[in-house]
Amino acid sequence: MIDTFPPFASPRSAPPPAEEDLRLLLLIRHFELTLLRLFEAGQLSGTTHTCLGQEYIPVALKPLLEGDDFVFSNHRGHGHFLARHTDPHGLLAEIMGREGALCSGVGGSQHVYHRRFLSTGVQGESLPVAVGTALTLKDTGALTCVYIGDGTWGEGSVYEALNMARLWEVPLLVVVEHNGIAQSTPTTAQMAGTVAGRAAAFGIPHHRTASTEIDEIRAELALLVAEVRSASVPLVVEFATHRIGPHSKGDDTRTPEEIALAADHDWYTRYAGLFPEAFGRLDREMRELVERAAADVSARPPSVWERP
């Protein structure tokens, strides 16, 4: 992976994030770490994709989204979900196929539908669907937010959808988590040109941020997102981010140097160093919360599905 973003693009002197935000960041972090631990212990089946290092993106977007908005997520969607609905028990039960699962254990990690939050496992597939929902939200003040990655831009459906989104002026917020690597393929080996150039080709406004500071990101995006709602226009927001964990479970083929470089951008170690006391307290609290949730969900009976 070729890293083009300097570590700590945001000032190191920035104030700590609000406790509520830090709590959510840590909830997602410990949720993902717990999944990897459960996998290693043989307690999870199938596959999962964690968002380690990228947690701050849905946390930053949280207050910018409203209750009537649709949110579409992808294979790496646990953070997106937890920032939208703080229900780690329901999500973990879904992933583990236990009672209380959000979707009866049918969808698993990549296919969750809960109150206008929907994730799917096929890259790019959700964008046209998102345009359809956004058509119904035109001029209502609500919007459809869809998370995609840099790898998703290889899919033709992305361009068909962006074309219609601009043509029909629908309130669509496309959030690109550009972590520089598509599974094992560096972006430089799978994308010609840039995300900005591609958005520009459709006349769609594009904003790129390398910030990992939640308040800074919100300040950058607040007016832009408000414009999506008020003017019913699409917007592409590109986050230059870093996936510090593997694509799924232990399938990281990056060199130790590349992984270390990605880890340099981790908000977790940064906040731990900057605000050790407050951070340590919340870190412990959220770790224990997720540990309790894992113990609770693991002890539940299997989920039941009434097959149609």
Binding site: F70, L118, E125, L127, P128, V129, A130, V131, G132, T133, A134, L135, T136, L137, G156, S157, E160, A161, N163, M164, L167, W168
Partner: peptide
């Protein structure tokens, strides 16, 4: 009633999105 670009895949996706949103 909308005439669409030549995008069969995405147009069916838009239809599914409309349906998902209650239309």
């Amino acid at each position: 009633v909308r005439s669409t670009p030549l995008s069969e895949g995405a147009v069916v996706g838009v239809g599914a999105g409309l349906a998902l949103a209650g239309r």
